[in-house]
Nucleic acid binder design. Structure first.
Length: 489
DNA sequence: AAAAAAC
């Protein structure tokens, strides 16, 4: 098999209809219910190919309609052999969808359930952080389609609440993300439990060498589908960066939010601590803000997401748990409170806005020490991002915008002011880690985040030897070794 | 460097 070839067609979705694919009336009815008539480009390409039973390697950003692209034909194929018996034994798991995050699993499951609603097929979702028993109960009752995060799925396998021996179709959604998160060993264990004879669909936002290798080991003669070149940012998104000194970043975000009177904004932070602090800071400024990150309980995560979707919260401060996949529709604006360490994450983050033809703004705050990150991002997206100036933003005090009568600079620790104490991570923020081991033990914590910011300088000051290559190569080697070794447990 | 994910 040669290199990945692009089958990207300037599809003409306006002329294609879902009814052209020979899908069952039950599926078409579900689509009609939701007002869907025309497939998106990736749907138009994927549906016929999946219906043919081919393996697929799909490159697609979120917001392209990828979920329907694989779930509609899967449902169709399952229906072709569906039976209406109520016996659990007659409802073995036949399609398995794996996702990297719990929220994404829930979201995919909601879609699948919707598409199935006029069919006898049953689907369910399993993920960690919540009680396992109800999940096991549902699966023992028999389901054809399971959407899962890898760890909890394996848990169910060990508990024997699920058998994977009848799985005919496997979907790996956000495969690049799963690799990044170290799910490769779990993926391999799961795949070892599946029948050899099956159809595989893999979706990834990027075509890194690791992803190609994964595709080569798990897919059989796949058809490659690509819509919108990966690494290309949506053209509808207006991007701008504002340079601010590190200690004024939070004020800058508050200023931007207030200035533009923005509703429904996601603000991305690189750290969980940073996200919590920023959310609280914004709340103190009177905004309706909430944080979502991996140290929140699953309940809190869901609650924040729901509140945001319902419009009860205007600002969702998130780590990269929300960077990919989440279908928070058509946000007018995304703000990067930190520039992401991985340039690719920038693309995913700003992909939350400017979707479905709408335009959007992507605003990033950065400071001196982030020049390198900005350069990496611009290199990846092959464009220079506009440097903006925050008109009227005067964080250094001395009057400035304080004449608006705002409460005195809640988010501006002066030197020596000991606001740090009150900025510690909330107590009780994670009474329940969802069963995952508590992150680092107290005595092992490196409290870098509690220290005041200091521009880090090498020991010799001037010779800040720049050697990014080896550090970048390391994780890749690990992935390559795992892929090559195909170790089994 | 960070984040995510099973018990």
């Amino acid at each position: 098999m040669s290199d990945i070839e692009t089958t990207a067609q300037p599809a003409t979705p306006a002329q294609v209809r879902f009814s052209d694919f020979g899908l069952s009336p039950a599926i078409l009815q579900a689509l009609t219910d939701q007002g869907y008539e025309h497939p998106t480009p990736i749907q138009a390409q994927a549906i016929p190919v999946v219906l043919q039973g081919r393996d697929v390697m799909g490159a697609a950003q979120t917001g392209t309609g990828k979920t329907a692209g694989f779930s509609l034909p899967i449902i169709q194929l399952l229906l072709a052999h569906a039976n209406t018996s109520m016996s659990p034994a007659r409802h073995p798991v036949r399609a398995l969808v794996l996702t990297p995050t719990r929220e994404l699993a829930v979201q995919v499951a909601e879609n699948v359930a919707n598409y199935c609603k006029h069919t006898p097929l049953r689907s369910t979702v399993v993920y960690g952080g919540v009680d396992i028993k109800p999940q096991a109960q549902i699966m023992r009752g028999g389901v054809e389609i399971v959407i899962a995060t890898p760890g909890r799925l394996l848990d169910h396998v060990e508990q024997k609440s699920i058998s994977l021996s009848q799985v005919q179709m496997l979907v790996m959604d956000e495969a690049d993300r799963m690799l990044d998160m170290g799910f490769l060993p779990d993926l391999q264990r799961i795949i070892n439990l599946l029948p050899k004879q099956r159809q595989n669909l893999m979706f990834s936002a990027t075509f890194s060498p690791e992803i190609k290798k994964l595709a080569n080991s798990f897919l059989t003669n796949p058809v490659t589908i690509e819509v919108a070149r990966s690494n290309a940012t949506a053209d509808k998104v207006t991007q701008v960066v504002y340079k601010v000194s590190e200690e004024h970043k939070r004020d800058a975000v508050a200023y931007i939010l207030r200035q533009r009177e923005m509703k429904q904004v996601i603000v991305f932070s690189n750290t969980k601590i940073g996200a919590s602090r920023l959310a609280r800071g914004l709340e103190q400024e009177g905004m309706k803000a909430s944080a979502i990150h991996g140290d929140k309980t699953q309940q809190e995560r869901m609650a924040a997401l729901e509140a945001f979707k319902r419009g009860e919260i205007d600002v969702l401060v998130a780590t990269d748990v929300a960077a990919r996949g989440l279908d928070i529709s058509d946000l007018p604006c995304v703000i990067n409170y930190d520039l992401p360490y991985n340039a690719e994450d920038y693309v995913h983050r700003i992909g939350r806005t400017g979707r479905a033809g709408a335009s959007g703004d992507a605003i990033s705050i950065y400071s001196d020490k982030d020049e390198r990150l900005l350069a990496d991002i611009e290199k990846l997206i092959k464009q220079t991002i506009k440097r903006g100036a925050l008109e009227g933003f005067n964080p250094s005090g001395r009057g400035g915008e304080q004449r608006h009568g705002e409460r005195r600079a809640s988010a501006r620790p002066e030197r020596g002011e000991r606001s740090e104490r009150s900025e510690r991570p909330e107590r009780g923020e994670r009474p329940d880690r969802g069963g995952r081991p508590m992150a680092p033990r107290r005595d092992k914590i490196d409290p870098w985040f509690l220290k005041p910011y200091e521009p880090s300088r090498g020991p010799a000051g001037a010779t800040a030897s720049v050697a990014p290559a080896p550090s970048a190569a390391k994780p890749k080697q690990k992935v390559a070794a795992l892929l090559g070794g195909l170790r089994k447990e």
